[in-house]
Design a protein around this nucleic acid. Structure first.
Length: 478
DNA sequence: TTTTGAGTTGTTCGA
DNA sequence: GTCGAACAACTCAAA
């Protein structure tokens, strides 16, 4: 090996310097050229959504700055990854290309072909696990099959997991300077109109923001997590999901930090277990997507292929804009629109409402979340929507239909969450906040509400919707 | 091969 | 207000 021959590090969903095996391998091999390729041309990839594009722009800017501090210049290219990498290898005389694995079906196909092609050209191509606690093929049932139930999957993962310390990063030395696109020319940011104001206020994309959020969560949130994680009115979430999606932090880093905190403070143990289980659900989603590549497109349970969905764009529009007439549902949908994120409990409620009360195909909801979530993640999104629909792995029983009123009263008891995101009913007394249509006329008048004008009547009566859904799901079993 | 126990997140009804 | 049962059987995982 010629010591001066550089290596390419192909960044993808691992936009960090710490705990990054591809970067470590490249640094150990010699000079490093960091690369990001915006590939919106290879067939079979799902294009990233609007909110994700905004995040990607910020995260790349942050990564470029972090690399620059270490004397490295991030090279940006656009186009099919295979062609872009060939060109980069040629221009730099690199002898190797390193990357960390992604698990979307289209990405796997593309990357396998690229690895084959590079190897055939005499270039060393090596990929690593940077984004999962264990690879999807490392966990199987006793019979060698993939798991379809979470709890045994989680037990198997915990039993197999052996996390050592993160290996130290060798000194980084820059490779030859290459031409780079300008990030601004990629037009990832919304312009007409610029709807990203709420996102800017809510998030700090990038590795530094991710590490800061992890510290903050462990210091302030972990000790209440098991008790408050279902409360959208409290800052009870870790808010790490978008950072995790883009790999600004790894699940291994989170695992180590949470375990360390719990080992030092036994009172944290049950909270740590509760939180790490959620990290486990992310792993389970990737496990499912890897082994059942049709997960985003088709129901995991084939009998759901013949479910008789209603196709009503007007209902879906009301849902997506937060105008269903159910305050908790509307608050969630508006939180999503404004901040690019929604509390997990509320995601379940709005998904249940779209699927069960409105009888719309879960794929419509999946697509809306894909476009609007900053943490849009193919594995988690598809697995979760199928879970709510009942068509997925370990799915909710069909009779489990969330009551949006009860859920609101239970998990937003003071109405703070609804008042924040549905300001037109903020002046209602709390006892009517989750059921504005039951408020007496004078109470509505005092609160400045004219039902049907300033705030909608419910799209459908809860009991009627529930019975209709039960009947529709019962037909599936005939 | 057969058997057995268990399965994220809920709601409603009736005592 | 509170509590337990019913909601359905089925599939999955392991013994």
């Amino acid at each position: 090996m010629v010591a001066s021959a550089p290596s390419l590090v192909w960044f993808r969903q691992d936009l960090r310097l710490a705990d990054n095996p591809a970067l470590i391998a490249a640094a150990a091999a010699g000079p490093v050229i960091p690369v990001y390729i915006l590939d919106d041309e290879t067939r079979g990839l799902r294009g990233i959504g609007g909110a994700s594009k905004w995040w990607l722009h910020q995260s790349l800017r942050s990564l470029a700055a972090d690399l620059a501090e270490r004397g490295l210049s991030l090279v940006l290219r656009r186009g099919p990854a295979a062609a872009a990498l060939s060109e980069l290898v040629r221009d730099s005389s690199a002898h190797s290309v390193f990357w960390n694995r992604c698990y979307e079906p289209g990405t796997i196909t593309r990357d396998s072909a690229i690895k084959q092609q590079l190897t055939a050209e005499g270039i060393r191509a090596a990929s690593f696990n940077a984004n999962l606690l264990l690879e999807p093929w490392e966990i199987t049932t006793g019979g060698g099959d993939p798991y379809r139930v979470f709890t045994p999957f989680w037990r198997a993962l915990c039993a197999r997991l052996l996390l050592g310390e993160v290996p130290p990063m060798p000194p980084l030395s820059p490779g030859p300077k290459l031409r780079s696109d300008s990030l601004d020319d990629w037009n990832l940011l919304p312009t007409k109109p610029d709807w990203a104001g709420g996102l800017r206020n809510a998030w700090q994309p990038g590795e530094a923001g991710a590490l800061r959020q992890l510290d903050k969560f462990i210091d302030e949130g972990l000790g209440r997590y098991a008790d408050e994680r279902n409360r959208p009115d409290l800052p009870s979430s870790s808010s790490l999901s978008p950072h995790l999606h883009w790999g600004e932090i790894s699940p291994g880093q989170i695992w180590r930090a949470v375990r360390r905190a719990a080992d030092a403070e036994p009172a944290l143990e049950r909270h740590a277990a509760s939180y790490l289980r959620e990290i486990g659900w992310r792993e389970f989603s990737y496990h499912l997507l890897y082994h059942f590549s049709y997960l985003p497109d088709r129901p995991l349970r084939p009998e759901f292929e013949r479910f008789d969905w209603t196709d009503d764009p007007a209902l879906r529009m009301a849902w997506s804009r937060g105008k269903t007439g159910y305050p908790l549902v509307d608050a969630g949908m508006r939180q999503l629109w404004q901040t690019g994120w929604m509390h997990n409990r509320v995601r379940m409620v709005v998904a249940s409402f779209l699927i069960k009360h409105l009888l719309q195909d879960w794929r419509h909801g999946e697509a809306w979340f894909w476009d609007t979530l900053v943490d849009a993640d193919l594995a988690s999104n598809a697995a979760s929507w199928q879970w709510v629909a009942g068509s997925g792995a370990d799915a909710a029983p069909y009779f489990r239909i969330m009551n949006p009123i009860l859920q609101g009263q239970k998990f937003d008891p003071n109405g703070d969450y609804v008042r924040q995101f549905v300001p037109e009913i903020a002046d209602l007394p709390t006892e009517y906040l989750h059921t504005p249509w039951t408020a007496p006329a004078d109470v509505l008048a005092t609160a400045g509400i004219e039902l049907g004008r300033s705030y909608p009547y419910p799209l459908i009566d809860h009991v009627a919707g529930r019975n209709r859904a039960l009947a529709a799901f019962a037909r599936l079993r005939e």
